[in-house]
């Protein structure tokens, strides 16, 4: 199994999958990411991240319904796995604990 570290972009994608809950598929994730971060996101980067995250075991996927505007192609819907949730939690905790260790003076 590959390393379990998370890149910043990967973390954002994971979170977005969480936000979208039942409807997390490639383009939807990109739209949400763009909305949330305000930066331009390439659709290919999103898919790349999704494939890697699935390889790492943080995401699982299943095929969803097809719509007309997609030319009859099905969506691949993603959801967080248990280890995906764990890794998000861990990274949040890490951040929190590091935040807490910054002396108050710094913020003044």
């Amino acid at each position: 199994m590959k390393g379990t570290s998370l890149g910043e972009f990967e973390e954002l994608v994971l979170l977005t999958v969480g936000i979208l809950y039942n409807d997390a598929y490639g383009l939807g994730i990109r739209d949400e990411l763009e909305k949330q971060t305000g930066r331009n996101v390439m659709i290919s980067s999103v898919h790349k991240a999704l494939v890697r995250l699935e390889d790492k075991g943080f995401l699982s996927s299943y095929m969803g319904g097809a719509t007309d505007e997609r030319g009859g192609r099905k969506k691949r819907l993603y959801e967080l796995t248990i280890s995906g949730k764990k890794v998000l939690n861990r990274s949040k905790e890490l951040r929190n604990s590091m935040w807490n260790s910054v002396p108050k003076v710094v913020w003044e």
Binding site: Y25, G26, L27, I43, E69, R70, R76
Partner: peptide
């Protein structure tokens, strides 16, 4: 299917 669908939608 997934990617092609996304691209077509876009």
């Amino acid at each position: 299917d997934a990617i092609e669908g996304d691209l077509l939608e876009l």
